Computed example of a mutant assay.
Amino acid sequence: MPFYKYVAVEGSGRKIRGVIEAENKVKAISVLAERGLMVVRVEEQKNFKRRSPFFQVSINEIATFCRQLSIMISAGIRIKEALNILARQEVFSRRFRKIITEILVNVETGDTLADAFRKTGAFDNVLISMLEAGEEGGVLDRTLRKAAEFYESVKRLQDEVKSAMAYPLFVLFFAVVIVLVISFYILPSLVRAFGTSIPLSPTIQALLKANKFLSKNWPWFSVLVVGVVVILFIIMRSRYGVYIKEYLSFLFPPVRNLRRNMGLERFARTLGILISSGVRITDAIKMAAHASDSPSIVRKSDEMVQKISEGKTLRDTFAESGVFPQLIYEMIGTGEETGKVDEVMERVADFYEDIVRNSVKRLVSLVEPLLIAGVGGFVAFLAYSIYTTVFQLQRSIGG
């Protein structure tokens, strides 16, 4: 079906713009009018292609949305009415409310809920596949509840990692402030007190030159620092930030092990929730691999799917992949024998979630003394350089 770009006015008088897919222009206007919008302009968009948003949708908003939609559907509210209500909820950001509105428009044009989600380009394949299975099986409310529990679990683990790293980051920030105060305020005052003709060590000279440069160019330097911080923040919150974090984690072995365990946890939990939702095992493995954010698992996913299609058991397939520890393929073998692969994967995910928590605690206990030692060492080095300078001054005065 063709796409139409529209400009319409809400009942509150706010002008909105968007793109709608419809059979023809008349159908597009009809759907928009049913939503209580006064259509100003509708134009067909030639060669229109939907693009995935640069920024990822908040996991917290996805979990809240799935939870509320599940409750409304189980209470007997029609999907269109439920989406219309959720599109006005202030608990969601303006961007996410716009996405819900786009889902509603897609549903009103005849799309299934899964297709409507897919067309927005804002949701991952895990959620979309769960919705497809839920719609086919007539258990959409239960599927949405499982999705909410899944994303809440992911968010809970992320929050624990962030809260654990908050104190080391504060120590690092405080240390940087101390070093800057010593380097650019205390040290120049001390040198001025002894005069400009005293012999200075290379370290002190370098710090004084940096102080002089920043004193003259601090407006431009401040703009540069703020710009770099903003750009890094934007990139890390985008979908490209995942690859950057993955690359940086390989530089530090404890972080590499932590990310590996987090990948196994996400893979096991995603695989379990997809299988329990009725998704085919081959599709579930592919999507779970991509949800793990682990390059090694993603690379092996196609090979694993091929072996399963040829008739190999899950246990043998996982064992031969070489990317999973023995615990996972032995447990999944037990799940095959008992017919409870989904439950087994959920327990494996809980196990690795505990490992991740403990790894974060150990990592924090390792980072804190390293930061303190690094800051203390730099301050001691500055103190030694100042003492050496004063000692040379005393010798020159004595001479």
Rank of each mutant, 00 (worst) to 15 (best):
K119Y: 07
L131Y: 10
R95G: 04
N106F: 02
V179T: 04
A164D: 14
D111R: 14
P202C: 09
R192M: 12
R145N: 11
F170L: 10
I182Q: 12
V161N: 06
V126Q: 09
N125K: 14
L144S: 03
R192T: 07
I198K: 01
S129I: 00
F221V: 15
S153R: 15
L187A: 04
K209Y: 13
P168F: 08
I99H: 09
F170K: 11
R97A: 00
V107H: 11
I103H: 11
D141M: 06
I186H: 01
E135A: 00
K212D: 15
R145F: 10
F117G: 01
A206M: 12
N125S: 13
K162S: 05
V107W: 13
S153K: 15
V176L: 15
A133M: 06
T120A: 03
S201W: 09
S189Q: 14
A193C: 00
Y167L: 08
K212C: 09
E152S: 06
L140S: 02
P188F: 04
L104A: 01
Y151W: 11
G121P: 02
A164H: 10
A114R: 10
K162D: 06
D124A: 06
L214I: 14
A166N: 12
E136C: 07
I198E: 02
R145E: 08
W218H: 10
V181H: 07
E132N: 10
T196A: 11
Q205N: 08
L207G: 01
F123E: 08
V171A: 00
P219N: 05
E149T: 15
K216H: 04
F117I: 02
S183G: 06
L200S: 01
F170R: 11
E160F: 13
Y167Q: 06
F213W: 12
F117P: 09
K209W: 12
I182P: 05
F123A: 02
R95F: 05
T143C: 04
E108P: 04
E102M: 12
L169T: 01
V181D: 07
L131W: 13
F213E: 12
L144D: 03
R97M: 06
T196S: 14
L172E: 13
K119S: 05
S129Y: 12
Q158I: 07
L172I: 15
L200K: 12
G195Q: 08
G138Q: 07
L200N: 02
V191A: 01
V177T: 14
L157Y: 05
L180W: 12
Q158H: 14
V191R: 07
I204Y: 02
Y185W: 13
E149N: 14
Y185K: 06
K212W: 14
Q205P: 03
E152D: 13
F213Y: 11
V176F: 15
S197R: 09
K209I: 08
V105R: 11
G138I: 00
N217F: 01
I103E: 05
R97D: 09
E132T: 03
L172P: 04
I178P: 03
T112W: 10
A122C: 02
V126N: 07
L187G: 02
R97C: 00
L127P: 00
S129T: 08
K209M: 13
R97Y: 07
